Amino acid sequence: MPRWKRLIGLRQPDPDLYALSDAACNPAAGGPQATPAPGDDAPATLEIRYLGTAGFVISDGCHTVVLDPYLTRPGLLASLTRPLVPDTALIARLIPEADDVLIGHAHYDHILDAPDLCRQTGARLIGSSTAVQVGIAAGLPPEQLLATAGREDIASGPWTVRGLPSLHGRIFGRIPFPGDLHAPPPWPPRMADLPHGLVLNWLVDTGGLRVMHIDSADFIDTELAGHRCDIVCLCAIGRQARPNYVRDIVKHLRPKWIIPCHWDTMITPVEAEPDLLPGVDLPGFLREIEAEGVTPLLTPILGRQLFDQPGDAGPA
């Protein structure tokens, strides 16, 4: 690891941590398998691919929803000092298809690549009014923009998505770049041009499995209560600032599996060996999940988990 990374507290995850999710990667133990060929006598499969940071692609092969994509990842100096320009070719190569793109909040590491992905695929960008202002700044037409204040069911092809109002977690004692946008920001933007806006926890109902995406380590208890789901994609950074974070998530949502996210830095190239964000205790996070009776599925960046539909069948 370069010396400058060590000086700012970056380190790489212990490869042995992935062994904690071996059951999720071992077909004999009921873990992910190859997707069945069309026409095979096998249940439909849902694929969840981790993009790093808080990004995910959820697809059944016919319909694809993307959450918080951020692949561009300029280095530390560029991120702090220059306008942030999406890497169009990288986005096209790694996410060739999308029907809808859901934004949990409008910080740069959650939204920068979303308008470009929508432009390439024709997908809608769905999020808060602040997220829509970002889409306008990037030149998306009105028909590809949908603002929500949350608590409404939105048809996404054969699926249904719902944003639940939430809170941004505290990082080192503070909430970075708070506020809303009421006009389009500069484009390409700098980091500080993109406040978080309304934070939304996204519930994706595929008709067989229900997936909750929590992209920042806080939430509103009354918004989550009663929304049972099978899988939670759960933010790791800042969880220590929210008492009983994992315990309360499990109490409200009763998931079978939790896929940790937002544990890796947003300045390490997406196809390089990942670095842990300073302050992330990934082993402790996995232990907390297991202590609540839930299976953690620690997933490599650009790795995937496959699940049979319906949810009670278990991982594929």
Score class of each variant (00 low, 15 high):
residue 68 D to V: 07
residue 69 P to S: 15
residue 69 P to R: 08
residue 72 T to E: 13
residue 73 R to E: 10
residue 76 L to A: 00
residue 76 L to Y: 06
residue 76 L to I: 14
residue 79 S to I: 02
residue 80 L to T: 07
residue 80 L to A: 13
residue 80 L to W: 06
residue 80 L to D: 03
residue 81 T to P: 04
residue 81 T to C: 02
residue 82 R to A: 11
residue 84 L to R: 05
residue 90 L to G: 07
residue 91 I to C: 15
residue 92 A to D: 13
residue 93 R to T: 08
residue 95 I to F: 09
residue 96 P to L: 05
residue 97 E to H: 15
residue 99 D to R: 10
residue 102 L to K: 10
residue 103 I to S: 00
residue 105 H to W: 06
residue 105 H to Q: 02
residue 105 H to S: 01
residue 106 A to T: 09
residue 107 H to D: 02
residue 108 Y to M: 07
residue 109 D to A: 09
residue 109 D to G: 07
residue 110 H to L: 12
residue 110 H to F: 05
residue 110 H to Q: 03
residue 113 D to E: 08
residue 114 A to I: 00
residue 115 P to N: 07
residue 121 T to W: 14
residue 121 T to F: 02
residue 122 G to I: 05
residue 123 A to F: 08
residue 124 R to M: 09
residue 124 R to F: 07
residue 125 L to G: 12
residue 125 L to M: 14
residue 126 I to P: 07
residue 126 I to L: 06
residue 127 G to K: 00
residue 127 G to V: 02
residue 129 S to Q: 10
residue 130 T to A: 01
residue 130 T to C: 00
residue 137 A to C: 13
residue 139 G to H: 04
residue 141 P to A: 13
residue 143 E to R: 12
residue 144 Q to A: 11
residue 146 L to K: 14
residue 146 L to H: 11
residue 148 T to N: 07
residue 150 G to T: 10
residue 151 R to T: 09
residue 151 R to H: 14
residue 151 R to L: 15
residue 152 E to P: 03
residue 154 I to S: 05
residue 156 S to H: 05
residue 157 G to C: 02
residue 161 V to N: 07
residue 162 R to E: 12
residue 163 G to Y: 02
residue 163 G to M: 11
residue 163 G to D: 04
residue 164 L to M: 06
residue 165 P to T: 06
residue 165 P to D: 05
residue 166 S to P: 04
residue 169 G to W: 14
residue 170 R to D: 08
residue 171 I to N: 03
residue 172 F to N: 15
residue 173 G to M: 05
residue 173 G to T: 00
residue 174 R to I: 08
residue 177 F to S: 09
residue 178 P to N: 07
residue 179 G to D: 14
residue 180 D to W: 00
residue 180 D to A: 09
residue 180 D to M: 05
residue 182 H to C: 11
residue 182 H to T: 15
residue 184 P to D: 09
residue 185 P to Q: 02
residue 185 P to Y: 09
residue 188 P to W: 00
residue 189 P to I: 07
residue 190 R to H: 10
residue 191 M to L: 10
residue 191 M to K: 13
residue 195 P to N: 13
residue 195 P to A: 15
residue 198 L to F: 10
